[in-house]
Write a protein that binds this DNA or RNA. Sequence first.
DNA 1: TCCTTGTTTCGATCGATGTCGATACAGAGG
DNA 2: CCTCTGTATCGACATCGATCGAAACAAGGA
Lengths: 127, 127
Amino acid sequence: MSKQGPPSPGSGVECCSPLVAEPLSGDQAGDLARVFKAMGDPVRLRLLSLIASHAGGEACVCDLTDVFALSGPTISHHLKVLREAGLIAGERRGTWVYYRVLPGVLGRLADVLAPVATGRPAAGAAR
Amino acid sequence: MSKQGPPSPGSGVECCSPLVAEPLSGDQAGDLARVFKAMGDPVRLRLLSLIASHAGGEACVCDLTDVFALSGPTISHHLKVLREAGLIAGERRGTWVYYRVLPGVLGRLADVLAPVATGRPAAGAAR
DNA sequence: TCCTTGTTTCGATCGATGTCGATACAGAGG
DNA sequence: CCTCTGTATCGACATCGATCGAAACAAGGA
């Protein structure tokens, strides 16, 4: 069903109005919930953070597998979930696969969560 | 697995360093994941948005139940999940129960997600 | 007092998800 | 060519979670 395998470029977070400003539509909520659900696991959150904070903005899977006491397939599964949520992208370079955080996604999420009057003018408000 | 169910009182988001700045610790990831998991459902996300955007900053359950094609117990369940995640709080006033978004939580989440250099002076502890 | 309305809790059902081992695929190097 | 290492997919299992109806609890009004 929702097996839209190809990480469609628009699969990220599209909506931009903060959720404290007006009620989310069903569509917006579904889109956002997919991303938050992907981040709703400690392992995936650490993976995301490890990739995002890694030197050069990308990390090799071989490096990520070491950090956890989990099997390779499990790490691969979590990376796939993050990939299909539109949070990260992987690229094979030679023997190893490198993952990096897709730009803009985290910023848009932060915009949605930020209170309207937190002193931050909606940075990327593409409307 | 770790069934640390009890809604620990300090169950809000405590950590503040953006996840792109340095890898999350296991504790921080678990704490954050609990909140993101609570937001990883379209119904809960819409509930949160409805409450946050409602006039006066609070909404009555009777108003929320109307919006969805779900039974009362189901709405109550989702509100409980949001409550135990430290996102909202409910108060009974007479016949009705009013929910409001706990202040600061969304802002801290936005800080964690925000890229360090997105044009936003790492507000850090906004207050 | 009883009854009516609003909200939560309880118990059950069924699909979704995290985890693993086994296996398949992709490159590098003999 | 074959083999070795790194990564992804497959199939299976156990647990979790969303949803419902029934029932309990809370407050107000007849």
